[in-house]
Design a protein around this nucleic acid. Structure first.
Length: 510
RNA sequence: GGCCCCAUCGUCUAGAGGCCUAGGACGCCGCCCUCUCAAGGCGGAGACAGGGAUUCGAAUUCCCUUGGGGCUACCA
């Protein structure tokens, strides 16, 4: 088909942990590359020294690896078109900048940063507010015109003598228009007048995003730039650069942004937003990938649960939707639950143990065989691995459990409940030595039959006794897994507590 | 403010002029099962933002309005 092999890149800026939005962008790039048998490049955009932190580069690798999105070229593994860390590409950036300066496409600008300007502004004027509208003063403020393009050589040298270092500014013809033919958005036209002469190299010599991205994408022979929609407005600037350089631009695909429940760009305040947080909460990477893949893309039809292979097989840019998507935690949770249910018990048990072992105080009952049995009961009741650990806390320790107040109130508030519990205790004490689930069941059902009561009358207090909670998996299995010794011990503990409470209650009512 | 993008159930989406009295999934509600909770089964409520135009026919095309979002840095 296409004569040129596909090359795409994911170019995160390591100023924080990998965001789910970034992960989704990485995923789409990866899917596109793999679907087209192309190359997936990882490039680290670390030119903003103010915000960049080295540890975050590692965090990005880690998150990507956890998601199993493998890259073919990158800072860690190298590649023919490196280096893949933007700050190591300074020489090339400078060279291209010089070329642009020599051709007259850019000019030196001595205005100083906008920040300085604003600071100066604030100290003077203000308060002429609204009424100056309509005059061209208002227009000028909206899009300040830089006059440096008209500076004479003499003026430049004198400025430089004063120690003013110039930035490099792109000359943009305000009359023209720039057209972006986007793979997902179609034909988009930008009046260049609204772009203005933009800076490509800071006065300290550092390249700016739009410039560095163009130079690097070209050098790395990127064929398709797949990135978030927030970059759509940057694209005309980059296209202008390609044009000035005489380079053929890549194809662009701007994928919809991910919003929070408030319809805002996802931010830290929206609960978990970083990939590593999902890892820590016990989400499964395949589930996250499945969920993220369906945010802004659909294979068509009614399928929801897709394997990586299926996604990879069917992914096309054309089927990416245009509208933003809200990150729905409830649906992710459901999806994770589905993956949890499908996960082999051994593997789930390993994950549970890993989580348990990471706890400050490691519980005393986490041998693999035992955990496997526990997990077989809990794996279809929990949304995350972390939930299994929490819900099953009473399984991982031999000691007594503190009953939850609501459970106590619901099932153990009457003297009858204590009576039933005593009877259960006796019945369980006499159950067959294997103490497997049917043994427990027979013991309790038999007891119910003998006494003419409903099994539930025995089961509920028993559940509170052995789990401390009003809800749990089937009680017969729970007791069996816990073992007779632990079960009886916990029943005794509750019984003791109940009679104590009763004594206090009588005391009070006196 | 300016420029740009977007617009189907609460949410993710299917839908590329008649197949749509708009389908699926999550969530929600009810019933069944049942020792509680899940799981499972069955059923239910729930959307084409509004207005024009084109057409025999519009969720699907065009225009306007409204609404939402993004960008507007010597950040990326």
């Amino acid at each position: 088909m296409g004569s040129t092999p596909v090359r795409v890149r994911f170019a995160p800026s390591p100023t924080g942990f990998l965001h789910v939005g970034g992960a989704r962008t990485a995923l789409f790039n990866w899917l596109f590359a793999r679907h087209n048998k192309g190359t997936f490049v990882l490039r680290v955009e670390d030119t903003d020294s103010a915000r960049y932190a080295d540890e975050y580069v590692e965090a990005v690798y880690r998150a990507l690896r956890w998601l199993k999105l493998d890259w073919d070229e990158g800072p860690d593994i190298g590649g023919a078109l490196g280096p893949y860390r933007q700050r190591e590409r300074g020489a090339m950036h400078r060279e291209v900048a010089q070329k642009l300066l020599a051709s007259g496409a850019v000019y030196e600008c001595y205005c100083g940063s906008k920040k300085d300007e604003e600071a100066a502004d604030e100290s003077e004027n203000d308060d002429d507010s609204s009424e100056s509208a309509g005059t061209d003063g208002a227009i000028e403020r909206a899009k300040p015109v830089c006059r440096c393009s008209a500076l004479s050589d003499a003026e430049k040298t004198s400025l430089r003598a004063k120690g003013v270092q110039p930035a490099l500014r792109m000359r943009v013809d305000p009359q023209r228009a720039v057209i972006v033919d986007d793979l997902v958005r179609g034909h988009v036209e930008f009046p260049a007048g609204t772009i203005g002469d933009f800076v490509i190299v800071k006065s300290d010599g550092g390249p700016l995003y739009n410039f560095a991205a163009v130079v690097d994408d070209h050098a790395m022979r990127i064929t398709h730039v797949i990135r978030g929609e927030e970059h759509l407005a940057n694209t005309p600037k980059q296209l202008l650069l390609y044009e000035a350089l005489g380079w053929e631009p890549p194809l662009f695909a701007h994928i919809p942004i991910i919003l929070n429940e408030q319809r805002r760009k996802l931010s830290k305040r929206d609960g978990a937003t970083f990939v590593n947080e999902y890892e820590a909460l016990g989400f499964l990477p395949d589930a996250l990938v499945n969920f993220l893949g369906l945010l802004g893309w659909s294979p068509g039809g009614n399928r929801e649960l897709l394997t990586r292979a299926q996604m990879l097989d069917e992914f096309t840019i054309e089927s990416v939707v245009k509208h933003p998507a809200i990150f729905d935690h409830a649906k992710l949770a459901w999806m994770n639950k589905e993956y949890l249910k499908a996960l082999p018990l051994d593997e789930l048990a390993e994950r549970v143990i890993a989580l348990l072992e990471g706890r400050a105080s490691i519980p005393d009952r986490i041998d693999p065989e035992h955990v496997r049995r526990v997990v077989s009961l809990l794996h279809e009741r929990a949304y995350t691995v972390a939930e299994i650990v929490d819900q099953g806390a009473y399984f991982f320790t031999r000691g007594a459990v503190a009953p939850a107040p609501d459970a106590l109130a619901k099932y153990c508030s009457t003297p009858e409940a204590a009576e039933r519990l005593k009877e259960v205790r006796a019945a369980l004490a006499e159950a067959p030595p294997d103490f497997d689930a049917p043994d427990v069941e027979n013991a309790i059902r038999g007891l119910a039959q003998r006494t003419g009561r409903k099994a539930a009358e025995f089961i509920h207090p028993l559940r509170v006794a052995v789990t401390g909670q009003a809800v749990s998996p089937g009680i017969f299995e729970v007791c069996s897994i816990l073992g007779r010794e632990v079960a009886l011990e916990r029943i005794d503990a509750l019984l003791a507590r109940l009679s104590e409470q009763r004594a206090v209650g009588l005391e009070r009512s006196r």
